Simulated assay, not measured.
Amino acid sequence: MTPDPRFYDALGPVSLAELARLTGAELSAPEAGERQVLGVAILSRAGPDAVTFLTNARLLPELAAARPGACFVSAGEAAGLPDGCVGLVTGQPQAAYAQAAERLHRPRRVGEGGTPAAVEEGAVLAPGVVLGAGARVGRGTLIGANAVIGPGVAIGRDCVIGANVTLGFALVGDRVRIHAGAAVGEPGFGAAAGAGGLVDMPQLGRVILQDGVTLGANSCVDRGAFEDTVIGENSKIDNLVHIAHNVRVGRNCAMAAFTGISGSVVIGDGVQFGGKAGVADHVVIGDGAIVAADAAVMRDIPAGEKWGGSPARPFRQWMRETAWLTREAGRRKGTQA
Rank of each mutant, 00 (worst) to 15 (best):
D4C: 14
P5V: 12
R6P: 13
A10K: 10
P13I: 07
P13Y: 08
V14P: 13
L16V: 10
E18T: 08
A25K: 05
S28K: 09
A29Y: 11
E31T: 00
G33Q: 09
R35E: 14
L38Q: 15
G39H: 10
V40L: 07
I42L: 15
S44R: 15
S44G: 14
R45M: 08
R45C: 02
D49H: 13
D49K: 08
D49I: 07
A50H: 12
A50F: 06
V51H: 05
L54Y: 08
L54F: 08
T55S: 15
P61Y: 09
E62W: 02
E62Y: 02
A64K: 10
A64Q: 07
R67W: 06
G69S: 11
A70Q: 11
S74W: 04
G76W: 06
A78R: 04
A79Q: 13
D83Y: 08
V86Q: 06
L88V: 06
Q92F: 14
P93H: 03
A95K: 08
Q99T: 12
A100C: 04
A100V: 04
R108I: 12
R108Q: 13
R108P: 10
R109F: 13
P116L: 10
A118K: 13
E120V: 11
G122T: 08
A123H: 09
A126I: 05
G128A: 01
L131Y: 09
A133S: 14
G134F: 01
V137F: 07
R139F: 10
G144R: 07
A154K: 14
I155L: 12
C159P: 00
G162I: 02
G162R: 00
A163N: 14
V165C: 00
T166R: 01
T166A: 10
L167P: 05
G168T: 15
F169P: 02
L171D: 15
V172D: 00
G173I: 00
D174Q: 08
V176L: 04
A180M: 09
F189E: 02
F189T: 04
A192M: 05
A193W: 14
G194I: 06
A195P: 10
G196P: 03
G196R: 11
V199R: 13
Q210Y: 05
D211L: 11
D211Q: 12
V213F: 02
T214K: 00
G216E: 06
A217F: 02
S219T: 00
C220L: 03
G224K: 13
E227A: 14
D228W: 09
D228K: 12
K236H: 06
L240P: 02
V241M: 00
I243H: 05
A244H: 03
V247M: 09
R248N: 04
G250W: 02
F258R: 08
T259P: 01
G263K: 04
G263M: 07
D269N: 07
V271M: 05
Q272R: 10
G275V: 00
A277L: 01
A277I: 00
G278M: 07
A280V: 02
H282K: 12
V284W: 04
I285S: 02
G286W: 00
D287G: 01
I290A: 11
A292P: 07
M298C: 13
A303N: 04
A312L: 03
F315R: 11
Q317C: 10
M319V: 15
A323N: 08
E328C: 13
A329N: 14
R332K: 15
K333W: 12
K333F: 11
K333N: 12
G334C: 12
